[in-house]
Design a protein around this nucleic acid. Structure first.
Lengths: 136, 136
DNA sequence: CGGCATCCGTATAGATACTG
DNA sequence: CAGTATCTATACGGATGCCG
């Protein structure tokens, strides 16, 4: 319990300040953004290649997600005016800096997925699984 | 440029696989969850203390966010049946493991906020800021 | 091939009022 | 103090169809 206080030094004061960071966290925390950036982590991909890689994303969401990422300077869009047209998407240097934190988050999710799903299931069957009543 | 490819080893194959992790990422990527976990990183807080710390969150969203976190075993809810009632929220050991990745993401957002906002502004004034047309 | 536009159902989020 | 309940507005997200 005390360890928690020690383990988090000035984070306590910094994390709550991230209200101004909320828009940015909202984007990268977006359901699809993570997957798209992950797909692009390996290198440039074309539009339909992305659709196949992310698999499950609708055309609309892929387009919107990419547009947002391009606007934010995280993804570079390259148009080859050939016939048929070809569009490559790749991470910009800025976009690549996002890979590491994202991987950390990804690994966290992977490492603790079982625990979370166990807790989630327990919460549904037994009301008050992660709750506690302090008796006087 | 080549360094980027080297820096991302098998991530290329793992990140796209996180479709099954999407629900978990969706929770922690949630607009309020990050802020609530951040607020709790410093130690236990009561309901209204959380409301003040997160500031901007509605009562409804705080309640829903906390309920979700409790269900997922990331937050422990302790009820003191006093009058007036008192409820403490604190991170569980599992919840505390989330702090580090979250801080990494927070620091990324903080370090690159300016670049993103610059790119975002540039994209609005100049159409095609982060785009490129490959001429044949 | 790589989109954008449209429609439409649903999920989400805020404000408000009320309760134990 | 710590919620719950209800209503409403809007944003999100999918399916479809058309265009360069």
């Amino acid at each position: 319990m005390t360890a928690a206080n020690i383990a988090v030094p000035d984070t306590t004061q910094e994390l709550p300040r991230c209200r101004e960071l909320a828009p940015i966290l909202a984007r990268i925390g977006d359901k699809w953004t993570v997957l798209v950036v992950g797909a692009l982590a390996g290198g440039p991909l074309r539009y339909n290649a992305l659709r196949r890689t992310v698999e499950g994303i609708s055309q609309r969401m892929l387009t919107l997600t990419l547009k947002g990422l391009v606007e934010d300077g995280l993804v570079l869009r390259t148009l080859y005016p050939t016939i048929p047209p070809r569009v490559d998407y790749e991470l910009t240097p800025l976009g690549r800096t996002l890979i590491d934190p994202l991987v950390a988050l990804f690994e966290w999710a992977r490492d603790h997925r079982a625990e979370i799903e166990t807790a989630r299931a327990a919460a549904r069957t037994d009301e008050g699984a992660a709750e506690r009543a302090a008796l006087p």
